[in-house]
């Protein structure tokens, strides 16, 4: 019984991580470091909540969350690719923008400080939307794999992330593909934000709670490979999966159990390379390197 609870909680905890990490994968395999996942999630979540409240339609809310994610991804992408901003700094800036921006929006739009009004019923065909989104997240793993390894788009994107000069030499628009990768990552991370709102039933400030960074940790853990990254997400989600059990069954104080996802991620990151004894993670060779035509 406990195991089942843990499993269910883990899968739901893994859903936003999966979406964000797969998004990060598409961005980073194209060569753009995406620290901005956290902020994209937050903006996606806010947009989903606001549009759902405004129209009464959770479906429109989902679309709004995804589009907002794509837009913020495009912003980060433009800064990194066209303005040649340092990818990490731009990502951090987006995250700070999201943190203060959504709080500002809460205040301006709803006159509240902490969270939006409740969204009401979030079901589709009698099933909670979170379940639909969890299925989408799981399905995204093979889809992203296929996109990367079996399509023209994926081949070109990977070429841009490994050796943009080579891609450029055969006439590939490096900047365009990189931007496409970041925008797609915005779509997926935006969807991750949507999921958070659909789970909580409203938007709350800082609700992404570091999931974007944990998704990045999953990228490192899975060495930028879709299936391994997905496994990483499940491992890290376990930290949240056991949280309730720790609190309710074992009586660990909530402040301590809240620490679990982060602590688990950090420990796994620290210990896993020692177990694997392999070489350290291999990011795409041109990750974070701006492409400038000679």
């Amino acid at each position: 019984m406990i195991l089942q609870d843990v499993l269910t909680a883990t899968i739901f905890a893994a859903t936003p991580l999966l979406l964000a990490a797969l998004g990060g994968l598409l961005s980073e395999r194209g060569g753009v470091v995406n620290i901005a996942l956290e902020g994209i999630m937050l903006f996606g979540a806010f947009a989903a909540a606001a549009v759902t409240l405004w129209t009464g339609s959770p479906l429109l809310g989902i679309i709004a969350g995804v589009l907002t994610g794509a837009l913020v991804g495009a912003l980060h992408g433009t800064a990194c690719i066209y303005l040649r901003a340092d990818h990490v700094i731009s990502g951090i800036a987006v995250n700070m923008f999201a943190a203060s921006g959504t709080i500002l929006l809460l205040k301006v739009v709803y006159g509240t400080k902490g969270s939006s009004p409740q969204l009401g019923s979030l079901k589709l065909l009698g099933v909670p939307l979170t379940v639909h989104l969890a299925v989408v997240a799981l399905a995204a793993v093979p889809l992203v794999w296929f996109l990367l390894y079996r399509t023209r788009f994926g081949l070109r994107l990977r070429a841009c992330g490994e050796y943009p000069e080579a891609a450029d030499a055969v006439g590939i628009n490096v900047h365009g593909y990189r931007l496409a990768g970041v925008v797609l990552s915005g779509v997926l991370a935006g969807l991750a934000g949507v999921f958070l709102v659909m789970t909580a039933g409203s938007f709350a400030k800082h609700m992404s709670a570091g999931r974007g960074y944990i998704a990045l940790a999953a990228l490192v853990f899975g060495r930028w490979r879709p299936v391994a990254v997905a496994i990483g997400c499940l491992v890290f989600a376990l930290g949240r999966g056991v949280q309730d059990v720790l609190e309710l069954e074992i009586g660990i104080p909530p402040q301590l159990s809240e620490m679990m996802p982060y602590l688990l991620t950090l420990l796994v990151l620290a210990v896993w390379p020692l177990i694997r004894r392999g070489r350290s993670a291999e990011p795409p060779a041109a990750l974070g390197r701006p492409f400038v035509r000679g």
Partner: peptide, 28 residues
Amino acid sequence: MVHQHFTLVPVFTVLENVVLGDEPGFIG
């Protein structure tokens, strides 16, 4: 063009490099 610094993606196969930029839509 054959550049002095080769324009092949090191981690790709010969075939992937040969088709890069001129590939069919699906590369299965």
